[in-house]
Write a protein that binds this DNA or RNA. Structure first.
Lengths: 158, 158
DNA sequence: AGCAATTATATTGTGTACAATTTAATTTAT
DNA sequence: ATAAATTAAATTGTACACAATATAATTGCT
């Protein structure tokens, strides 16, 4: 083993075993990736009841707090680009939850406005976060620490 | 506000503000979801160099430690089903990294065996975890805590 | 004013995730 | 032994993510 590899093994032994092997079980990123998938799966039965997917639910949450927001600002909040958002917003429009209007001052800009049905959905979604909190079976402090680390990761990694 | 909703707000104020509103900024699950997406984006330039996607890289990692594993056991390790794995494994087969063989004792079972090229790729992938560790700019202990919480979440939520 | 550069969104194409269903092989129960 | 039940993969269809590119509107520059 080279000096460089020894350093690697020492510094990052979350990721490798004593022989420097790549082990799935030791990968932080794999745990994060699997937990994110599991969370989306856990949301599904709750969101099926209001006919939303998880990304659609996040999008509605942005709109409930920022009605009339444009696609670019929505993308900045959700960390998603127009390639993801355009079709997603069209599907929410088809469901009758929002309208996609062009801004009067700038024809390029698409403003997203909730319909009455879209606004009404907010109330039905209100209990979802607490249900998920219970499903997690984790103490409040641990979830707060998880959020803090994820936010740091997101900020430094991009 | 009902008593039940007051309880919700008190218990889960990571998710809601003082008026009980659903705020994206306060959602643990959204942070986890965004961090997972960000991590996959951060892996991309490293994995492009060896022509793998992140799920393909995870799959190869399983094979490097468990050559000849079948699809079901692979799915249990990766928390993915055959609907995801079958096409993914076919793509890795097309790249010449593995062979998909039927088990002799049970014709239903598909065994996945690394080719020489598949085995050789392991060496090129060795430095990736340490590079990602550096990219995170987080102390080792915080990453270990992150992994621990994600693993707990994955176990309780399913 | 007029043209180049920039910006906002949309489109195209690839690769996941996953529910639901199908197919084929094996096991179980009678 | 054989029909029913179970199991392992594969298939089908929907919905993300995101890179790359295209389109159209606006801004900046001279």
């Amino acid at each position: 083993m080279t000096d460089k590899q020894a350093h690697v093994t020492h510094q990052a032994d979350v990721t490798t075993n004593e022989s420097g092997e790549l082990l799935l079980e030791n990968q932080v990123c794999f745990s994060l990736y699997s937990a994110a998938n599991a969370i989306i799966r856990a949301y599904r039965p709750l969101l099926d009841a209001i006919d939303l997917t998880y990304p659609q639910y996040l999008t509605m949450m942005v709109l409930w707090a920022n009605d009339g927001i444009n696609v670019k600002d929505m993308g900045a909040k959700l960390h998603l680009d127009s390639g993801t958002l355009t079709p997603l917003l069209k599907r929410l429009e088809t469901k009758g939850l929002l309208d996609r209007k062009r801004a009067l001052t700038d024809e390029r800009v698409r403003e997203i406005w909730l319909t009455e049905a879209g606004k009404a959905l907010k109330d039905k979604a209100k209990t979802i976060p607490y249900t998920m909190f219970c499903k997690s079976e984790l103490p409040f402090e641990e979830l707060a620490a998880l959020k803090s680390t994820c936010d740091k990761l997101l900020n430094t990694i991009n």
